[in-house]
Structures are given as C-alpha cells and as structure tokens.
C-alpha cells in the first residue's frame, strides 16, 4: 500500500505525459499536434513540481510560524520551462498559419502529397 501512496502521483503523471506524446505523434492535424506538445510538456512540469513537494510543507515564501517549506528549485526551473513552452507554441502556430496560406490545408498527409508533387 505504501508503495502505491509513494508513487501514485508519478504514475498518473506518466500516463498524462504519454497521452500528450501520443497526440503529438499520431495527430494528422497540425493544431492538434501543437495541443499535444503542450499537454506533453505541462505533464512533465507536473513531474518536476512533484519532485519538490514536501509533505506538510508550504509554499516557499517566508511566513511566520512556518518551518517546513517545499523545495523552490523545481518551481524556478518550471517557470523557465513554461516560458520556453509558450515561445515554442507561438512559433509553431505561426508556422501553421503560413502553411495554411501556402498549401490550403493543415492536415499533414494532404500537404505531404502536395510536397511530393513538386
């Protein structure tokens, strides 16, 4: 039982990561691919934040009467990673808009066919 209590969080997070990863590699629509990338990354962020959690700890901001704080380092790393994620999303979406304009479609198999024709 303690085994499950110790790890349940990581296991569900792994499931979420893989759901996102599956959307990325299986989706044919490019917008959906980007949504998948975001879900994948957000789930990885949850893994990091889980690492920093201390049972009965509180948010790492000094307050009176609190002695146990959760680890601030993973929080900092993930703040950076979230920003990186949104930056990638913006560029990816801009590419999609251009692809739509150039090819008239955002379905991967359709523009692949058009690429091969050239």
């Amino acid at each position: 039982m303690s085994f499950i209590i110790d790890y349940y969080n990581y296991w569900i997070v792994v499931f979420l990561m893989m759901a996102g990863f599956y959307i990325v590699i299986s989706a044919n629509n490019l917008v959906k691919k980007v949504v998948g990338l975001n879900i994948f990354q957000t789930s990885v962020f949850m893994m990091y934040i889980s690492i920093g959690k201390v049972t009965n700890g509180s948010a790492p901001i000094v307050a009176e009467g609190i002695t146990t704080y959760s680890n601030p380092l993973p929080h900092v790393l993930i703040l950076t990673a979230i920003v990186v994620g949104v930056a990638t999303t913006a560029v990816g979406l801009a590419l999609i808009v251009r692809i739509k304009r150039a090819y008239g479609t955002v379905e991967e198999n359709e523009f692949k066919d058009k690429d091969d024709l050239i």
Binding site: I49, S50, V54, G57, A59, P60, S70, H75, I78, L79
Partner: peptide, 9 residues
C-alpha cells in the same frame, strides 16, 4: 501546482 505548493508556477 497550488496543491503542491508551487504558487508562482
């Protein structure tokens, strides 16, 4: 994230 004490995140 709030539940895991990461309020900034």
């Amino acid at each position: 994230f709030v539940n895991l004490d990461a309020v900034d995140v």
